[in-house]
């Protein structure tokens, strides 16, 4: 099973990025091989629709699960339609979140926010 996590830094001990679409990096962690890969999020700097593009990256990497503190409606739509399950992360590092998820301690994310597009 492949788990994707939005991160501030390329580090298993880094904390999660509060923004899914504009996270600088994603960690893709394969729970079968216990190996992780850090990928730069090319969506982070796009002017709009970052969530959609970021979700596209997640599906392109064939992730099964996303652990994130928050997620927008558009990104959630892409992920849901692509059968990627979205779980609400807890505070703490990427490593702690993977452990918690595998132990069944995380719940599905239920609230998806609308965009912060075109702010003044």
């Amino acid at each position: 099973m492949k788990i994707a996590i939005p991160l501030e830094q390329k580090d298993l001990n880094a904390s999660l990025c509060p923004s899914f679409g504009r996270a600088p990096y994603f960690l893709f962690y394969d729970s079968d091989t216990e190996e992780g890969e850090f990928v730069e999020n090319s969506a982070a700097t796009t002017p709009g629709g970052a969530g959609i593009r970021a979700a596209q990256i997640i599906t392109d990497y064939d992730a099964d699960i996303v652990l994130t503190p928050r997620c927008g409606e558009n990104a959630a739509e892409v992920l849901n339609k692509a059968d990627v399950a979205i779980y609400k992360s807890m505070s703490g590092t990427a490593r702690e979140n993977v452990t918690a998820f595998l132990a069944g301690e995380l719940a599905l994310l239920r609230d998806f926010h609308s965009g912060f597009h075109h702010g003044r």
């Binding site: 969506a43 709009g48 629709g49 959609i52 593009r53 892409v78 339609k81 692509a82």
Partner: peptide, 10 residues
């Protein structure tokens, strides 16, 4: 699409 208005799903 530079505006990310399209996504490839399945």
């Amino acid at each position: 699409c530079k505006f990310n208005a399209l996504a490839l799903i399945k």
